[in-house]
Write a protein that binds this DNA or RNA. Sequence first.
DNA 1: GGGATTTGACCAGC
DNA 2: GCTGGTCAAATCCC
Length: 326
Amino acid sequence: MQTQSRLAVNGGGSGSSSSASEDEHEVVIRELTRGHELTAQLRAEALRALRGQGQAEATAAFILQEVSRAFTVCLTIMSSPARAPPSSQPPPTMEMAPAPALAPPRRSRDDSIPREQRTTSSPHNDGHQWRKYGQKRITKTQFPRCYFKCSFHRERNCRATKQVQQCSNDDPPQYVVMYFNDHTCDTAATSGMMPLDDLSGLVMARQQAGQAGARALLDERGVQEEHERRLFVSSLACVLGGHQQQSPAGSGTTAAAVAVNAGHQQEPPPRARTRDDAPAGVDAPGEMPRIIDVDVAGLDVMDYDVTDALCFGDSYDLPGDGFPFL
DNA sequence: GGGATTTGACCAGC
DNA sequence: GCTGGTCAAATCCC
């Protein structure tokens, strides 16, 4: 995050006083808070103005949701103790530059503050691919906690992790999902030929309903989500390009959607590998800059920026309760 | 056979 | 020493 980086540089390397850093820190938090509030107001106004306009309404809602989410993430990071302005710490020197670690450092308990936390009945539906790497029974809790890493943890050195813990036996059961570290893989579920939901939910589902039931669930959801995914990509292309493209019966794809889908078929993403595979930091062959060739109105649409999250992110349930940050 | 999941062990913080 | 987070060998599944 650039703001963080600048602050870190200014606060440490310039030799400025700690009080100046504190002021700067407060200003950043205040401005972020104001930005968050204004975004909420803008969203209300936009949705009122675009009410009943279908795709435009959904797109505006999604974009503003993402803006709001960015503010939330920044505020969470800036408010965490780890980001507190230096007070009595000596100014860092050049020798304090991060040394190459021999082993990936474990997360200290001070860093155990999640960048995001939510309670949901569908912990799997967050638009990313996760791989379970552990499960632990936590004392004084009824249900075990499951630990997930981004599937691209090794390939792209993505440090994003999440923890999923069932918190109630309601129907449907509720899960507390905590997210740690941001995705650096720049990859959401759309990039994969994997099932369109990530596997964490299936893991939980398998534990509860048995594998046969989970497979049936996957098949059913896969068909439905594939259909909805195409509709969303189609809608996005229409909105961005100002085109009102007819959807062929049963297809629901546009030229842009076809381009997206064709691209993925030509370049199937590398599947998640085991620990025995390529060393970390080595990109898989065939990786390419992640710009989807959506040739509408001359726009290049970064896949995560819009299309991924629109198709698979939290806003997948648009326009219902998919706006937890507003 | 390859990849994902399970699960006991290990490690670090408190 | 206890607890939570992660590792990695074993196992499972397709």
